[in-house]
Nucleic acid binder design. Structure first.
Lengths: 118, 118
DNA sequence: CTGCATCCGGTTCGATACTG
DNA sequence: CAGTATCGAACCGGATGCAG
């Protein structure tokens, strides 16, 4: 277990680090942000996130599902209709990711030339 | 520019998304967390973050430096002495990353069996 | 519409050896 | 101690084709 304010090493075997590592992925972040506006279908996510392929979307959603951050709801109709939404935990994380995103955008707005650097 | 609460797509060319994407990396997150305790040397970071190679550390630090989140200080002595520390912006981001980390650890502590899922 | 299986090129990454 | 250079292996990720 790694924790701040202690001299502990960040053990690769730590379950918390494993999860953090899974979240540390660009598609994961973008999907979490996208889902903040509400439940969405596969196609909608695909259309909304530029550059995201079907393969990576499915893979990302499955991972988020396994980690309990996203809920998948299947409506048994034809043609198939599937919706994805954030769980409570997912919303918590997504909120924090959004804060990072906001900080970045504010930061860039303030320094149009470069990144966050002065 | 992508932003929450708007129907905008998450444009791959958006500078904010580019930066978010760079932060969405496991070593970046871990290094930011590690540096929260204060300035650190190359070797210390290497020792502290299990599984981190010299190559990836350098690469990660260079990236964070370019984005203005980490400051590199070189003391001109032999043997060489270099210290890395968070900038103001770096601390902001690191704080948010730490909140994600905390949430994860609390969540796991509450549900030892599985992940964040209920 | 949703999603899986396969292929395969590009990138990443770790190990090692070397420099100042 | 800090960092670079090189190389081969592993992984990632997109394209395509197929299925329920």
């Amino acid at each position: 277990m790694h924790q701040i304010l202690s001299p502990d090493t960040f053990d690769a075997a730590c379950p918390a680090r494993a999860l953090l590592t899974r979240l540390a992925d660009k598609w994961v972040m973008l999907v979490l942000l996208a889902l903040r506006t509400g439940p969405m279908r596969n196609g909608a996510l695909l259309r909304r996130i530029d550059g995201l392929s079907q393969k990576m979307l499915t893979q990302t959603l499955r991972g988020l599902e396994r980690d309990g951050l996203v809920l998948r709801t299947m409506f048994d109709v034809v043609p198939p209709h599937v919706e994805y939404q954030l769980t409570e935990g997912g919303e918590e994380i997504a909120r924090l990711v959004d804060q990072i995103d906001r900080w970045i955008r504010d930061s860039i707005a303030g320094n149009p030339a470069a990144g966050p650097a002065a």
